[in-house]
C-alpha cells in the first residue's frame, strides 16, 4: 500500500511537469491549429535559462545571504521572461510570415527546434550540467510515505500556475478572445479583436509555462543538457493529444494520465519498456477516441 502511494506521488510529480508543457502545445494549437514542435526545446531553453538566472542572482547577491525561496522565484521569473522573448522572436520571424501555409510552418517549427538545441550546444558546450537545487531538501514521512520538499514544491507550483492560467483564460478579456479564436477563427477578427496580439500573448504564456516546467524538471532530475527537451517535449505532446489537443483542461488531465501510465509501466514492467508502453497506450487511446478524451469530434462539412 505504501509502495503504491509512493508511486502515486511520483506519478503526480511527473504528471504535473508534463501537464505544464502540454498546456503550451494545446494553447498554441487552440488558437493557431498548429503544432509548435519547437516547444520541447523551448522547455529545454527554460531549464538552462533558470540555471543561469540562479547563478546570476547568487553572484549578484555576493556575500549577502538571500532566502532560497527568493532565488527560486527570481530565477523562475527571469527564465520565463527570457524564454518568452526567444519564443516571441521565433514566432515573429519563423511562424508569422508562413502562418497561412500550414505544412511549411510545421517544418519551420521542427527546424527551430533543431536550431535551439544546437544553438544551446554551441553556447554551453557539450557537457551535462548538474543543476543545483534551489530548494533545501527535507524529506517528510507521512504514514510511511516519504515526500520531499522538492516534490511538494513541484506539485504546488505547477498547480498554482495552472490555476493562474485557468483564471486568465476564463476571467479575462484576452482569455475570452483566445477561447473565441479556437471556437471560430473567421468571426473573431470581425469582432474587432486583434488576432496577432492574442497569438503573441498565447505564445508568451505557453513559453512561460514551459520555462516553469524546465525549472521544475531540473529539480526533479537535476541534470540539464541541450537534448533534454526532445523526449520530454514529445511526451508532453502525447499528453496534450491524449487529453484532446486544443482543450486546456484536456492537456492538464492528459499530463497526469501520462505521468501515471509511465510510472505504472515502470513499476510493473522492466524500466526500459517504459517508453514503449506509454506509446502503446497513446495508440490505444487514439484508436478508441480519435480526438482525445476531451476533444470534440472532427467536424466534416460536405
Amino acid at each position: 500500500m505504501t509502495y503504491i502511494l509512493q508511486q502515486l506521488i511520483n506519478a503526480v510529480q511527473l504528471g504535473s511537469i508534463y501537464a505544464l508543457i502540454a498546456l503550451g502545445y494545446s494553447m498554441v494549437y487552440g488558437v493557431l491549429r498548429f503544432i509548435n514542435f519547437a516547444h520541447g526545446d523551448i522547455f529545454m531553453v527554460g531549464a538552462f535559462l533558470s540555471y543561469f538566472a540562479a547563478v546570476l542572482i547568487k553572484r549578484l547577491a555576493g556575500a549577502t545571504a538571500i532566502p532560497t525561496a527568493l532565488i527560486f522565484v527570481g530565477s523562475m521569473l527571469l527564465a520565463m521572461l527570457g524564454t518568452a522573448l526567444i519564443t516571441l522572436s521565433i514566432e515573429r520571424i519563423a511562424y508569422r510570415p508562413l502562418r497561412r501555409y500550414r505544412l511549411s510552418v510545421v517544418i519551420t517549427a521542427l527546424g527551430m527546434g533543431v536550431f535551439l538545441e544546437h544553438m544551446t550546444l554551441v553556447i554551453v558546450g557539450p557537457w551535462r550540467i548538474s543543476f543545483h537545487p534551489l530548494i533545501t531538501e527535507t524529506v517528510y514521512k507521512v504514514v510511511g510515505v516519504s515526500i520531499s520538499t522538492t516534490q511538494l514544491v513541484i506539485i504546488f507550483v505547477s498547480i498554482l500556475l495552472m490555476l493562474i492560467l485557468e483564471f486568465i483564460v476564463r476571467q479575462t478579456k484576452q482569455g475570452m478572445a483566445m477561447r473565441a479564436i479556437s471556437y471560430d477563427r473567421e468571426a473573431v477578427p470581425l469582432m474587432g479583436v486583434n488576432v496577432d496580439h492574442i497569438i503573441t500573448l498565447t505564445f508568451a504564456i505557453a513559453s512561460c509555462l514551459a520555462a516553469a516546467g524546465g525549472l521544475l524538471y531540473a529539480h526533479a532530475y537535476p541534470i540539464i543538457e541541450p537534448y533534454m527537451g526532445i523526449m520530454v517535449g514529445w511526451k508532453a505532446f502525447i499528453s496534450a493529444v491524449v487529453g484532446g489537443i486544443g482543450v486546456i483542461r484536456g492537456a492538464m488531465l492528459g499530463g497526469y494520465i501520462l505521468g501515471f501510465v509511465e510510472i505504472a509501466a515502470g513499476a510493473i514492467f522492466p524500466s526500459r519498456m517504459r517508453d514503449l508502453i506509454s506509446f502503446v497506450v497513446l495508440m490505444i487511446v487514439l484508436l478508441a477516441k480519435p480526438t482525445g478524451i476531451f476533444g470534440l469530434p472532427l467536424r466534416q462539412k460536405v
Binding site: 494549437y29 503544432i35 514529445w234 505532446f237 502525447i238 493529444v241 489537443i245 526500459r272 519498456m273 517508453d275 514503449l276 506509446f279 502503446v280 497513446l282 495508440m283 487514439l286 484508436l287 480519435p290 480526438t291 482525445g292 472532427l298
Partner: peptide
C-alpha cells in the same frame, strides 16, 4: 488507424509508430 484518425492526430500515430519500432528493436 488512418481510416478513423486524420490530420494532426494521425501525425501522432506515425510518431508513436516510430517510437514503438525503435523501442521494440531495442528490447
Amino acid at each position: 488507424p488512418s481510416f478513423k484518425i486524420r490530420g494532426d492526430y494521425l501525425a501522432i500515430i506515425t510518431l508513436a509508430t516510430n517510437f514503438i519500432i525503435k523501442n521494440g528493436i531495442e528490447n
